[in-house]
């Protein structure tokens, strides 16, 4: 507990937390507006194929609109959590504080575990922030879309809960990746770019593979971490998508691998 406390203390005694906060808020606002605009302007008739039309129709069911809106900010919130988690590790090397940290706690696995814990708490915090904001701004949007708030629906709360799981898992993933990419600048750039652009690029690759190579590639798309976390929070099963638990399993898998590999590397590495 002392160590997690120390990690959180490290985070809040530098400027990074409020810089990330300032970055997050406009991105969050943009996400809400984009979601709103999408649901306000889409109708099933726009869609091309019947398959797609069916997906769009399902997505426009009130319950699915609600789960999307009440988890607004997931994409960028998780981006911020991912970067902060990685920085929790990389800043130790960037500012040469790793020496001090490991002198105080020579059991390095304890340090990494504390970093996982601290990152998870950051994840919970950002989730709480976006969720509270969603609770405030989404009901008026729902009524503008001529829908009820849907807050009585179990599926909405389940989505919000699974959203929390996504934040925590990405936090763990971030710490693991921070260990792997020790250079702070490289870590933030690579993670940021891969997260934001990589999702679309990989999506495109999967689209091409599905179209021109074999249809079953589509089912592998859930292996992309961002797709997995988006899938996890969908309100009901969307046609043509794997079940939600697959998304959770994929993310947990990545988090465990990153965590174990990160801890092993940190234990072996010379600190100089």
């Amino acid at each position: 507990m002392n160590l997690i406390n120390a990690e959180l203390f490290k985070l809040r005694t530098t400027a990074i937390w409020w810089i990330m906060g300032i970055v997050l808020l406009p991105l969050y606002a943009a996400s809400v507006l984009a979601n709103w605009a999408q649901f306000a302007n889409t109708s099933p008739d726009d869609a091309a194929g019947t398959d797609q039309a069916e997906q769009v129709r399902a997505a426009l069911e009130p319950i699915n609109v609600a789960t999307s809106l009440y988890t607004s900010g997931q994409f960028f919130g998780i981006l911020i959590v991912l970067l902060l988690s990685a920085i929790i590790v990389t800043s130790e090397f960037f500012h040469l504080t790793a020496t001090t940290t490991f002198l105080v706690t020579p059991k390095r696995e304890s340090v990494i575990l504390a970093k996982f814990g601290a990152a998870a708490i950051v994840g919970v915090f950002v989730w709480l922030l976006t969720t509270v904001l969603n609770m405030i701004v989404v009901p008026p949007i729902m009524s503008q879309l001529d829908l009820s708030t849907q807050l009585g629906e179990g599926a909405v709360w389940r989505a919000i809960g699974l959203n929390l799981l996504a934040f925590v898992l990405w936090a763990v993933l971030g710490v693991g990746l921070g260990v792997l990419i020790r250079n702070q600048l490289a870590a933030t750039l690579i993670l940021g770019i891969v997260y934001v652009i990589g999702t679309s690029v990989v999506g495109l690759i999967f689209y091409l593979l599905t179209q021109y190579v074999a249809h079953w590639f589509e089912n592998l798309q859930v292996l992309v971490p961002t797709t997995a976390s988006a899938l996890m929070i969908s309100g009901t099963e969307l046609p043509g998508n794997p079940p939600r638990w697959v998304g959770a399993a994929v993310l947990i898998g990545y988090a465990i691998v990153a965590g174990v590999v990160g801890t092993l590397i940190t234990k072996r590495r010379d600190i100089s």
Binding site: F9, K10, T13, T97
Partner: peptide, 30 residues
Amino acid sequence: PIRQVGAVLEASSAHRGRSGRNHLRMICRA
């Protein structure tokens, strides 16, 4: 260990944006 052995290894090993006192407090907490 830090109650038994104290070490000073490199002068530039603190976060640039953190105050000296917070640097020490961070160690105290850990």
